[in-house]
Design a protein around this nucleic acid. Structure first.
Lengths: 190, 190
DNA sequence: TAAAAATCTAAACATTTGTTATCGTTTTAT
DNA sequence: ATAAAACGATAACAAATGTTTAGATTTTTA
């Protein structure tokens, strides 16, 4: 729980009493590799903070094909945040790709934080802003960069991804097929 | 300014005194069609609220090609919000497509609001969350829907877009060429 | 440790999407 | 009102990307 407390302290001004009260409402939980943390069609009532490990977020399209839209790493928050906010049934699957230690923030804790922490709303603002920036980058890359360029730059955002995630999941994240990624690596295409 | 005040009142609890103090720090400004509101490579220090009109957000890639990443409509906030938050040089161009009435929120007003409005951080949180949800949707569609599906559903997010925006800009937003959109409309492709 | 499963590359072929050019129509600007 | 520019459809062709299948290698599981 200490790692989680340190992250909070980096984001907002918060004393030990507030930290105690808040973290008491959170739950440490460890997942095994390939465990599913969150499924589609269920209203998500949890935000996860990752102490160690890696979580993949996927969406399934109308044809049943699975698309990796995100990898979440150490010291990051992850959730089906849209559906969490809107209290609507989830659209994503969250799955651990390694043994993953998390801190779970139940909805009750989050709402308690907004109401009772001196800088609770600021914390919520910073988390939302952080992911906004990340997503903005995503969208810009999808529009203005080729798959090859996205591949070449993926380690900017996910430093050791090549050692931790199979290539076909990286291809999915890039928005291409594994076969095509294999081709791009050979360098025949621009 | 009344429209802007009403929008604020819908988002947070705010009295007339606070509203007066805040809106005094904002500036009403009208732009002509095709005016540029914000350019790349300049640190953006403003958020725009749209009373009427429509603003297009574009990014230019390495080859000099322009991509439309967003249309902002009435009663929405729009900015190069990532760069605004990070105080970094802008990457987007904001351009009005109609005569557009805006309220400008200078950085000074935003920061004043966070510090002095009772629910300032909550307002910031809600705005960031709102755009997070919008972007999340964008990304999911880019991954899990075909261009044709994105075209068929575009009026969900932009109701009267077909009457207000030329088709080649819609194509750009969909991530395809105008020629290809023309093809899709004919219905030969899935 | 051995069998099974997952992974990556490769090739051949199919489909989607982009590019260029043309033409008629509509919109804009003088 | 008229000339210029922008716009959208279309066709022919080119390039990018997907699909299927096969085989070799690595990783996982029993």
């Amino acid at each position: 729980m200490q790692q989680f407390r340190d992250s909070l302290k980096q984001m907002i001004q918060i004393g030990n009493d507030e930290l105690d009260a808040f973290t008491t409402r959170c739950i440490a939980k460890t997942f095994n590799r390939y465990d599913v943390l969150s499924r589609p069609n269920v209203v998500p009532n949890e935000i996860f903070f990752i102490n160690s490990g890696i979580i993949r977020v996927t969406v399934t399209d109308n044809d049943g094909a699975e698309h990796t839209v995100h990898f979440a790493l150490e010291n990051q928050f992850i959730a089906d945040y849209s559906c969490f906010i809107m209290k609507q049934p989830s659209v994503y699957t969250l799955q651990s790709l390694e043994n993953t230690e998390t801190v779970i923030l139940p909805r009750s804790a989050v709402e308690w934080g907004y109401k009772n922490l001196l800088q609770g709303d600021k914390l919520g603002r910073l988390i939302a802003e952080f992911y906004f920036i990340y997503q903005d980058n995503r969208i810009r890359n999808l529009y203005a960069r080729t798959p090859k360029e996205r591949y070449d730059n993926i380690t900017e955002v996910f430093p050791d991804i090549h050692n931790r995630v199979p290539q076909h999941m990286i291809a999915s994240y890039l928005g291409i097929t594994p076969v095509h990624l294999s081709r791009l690596k050979k360098g025949n295409t621009k």
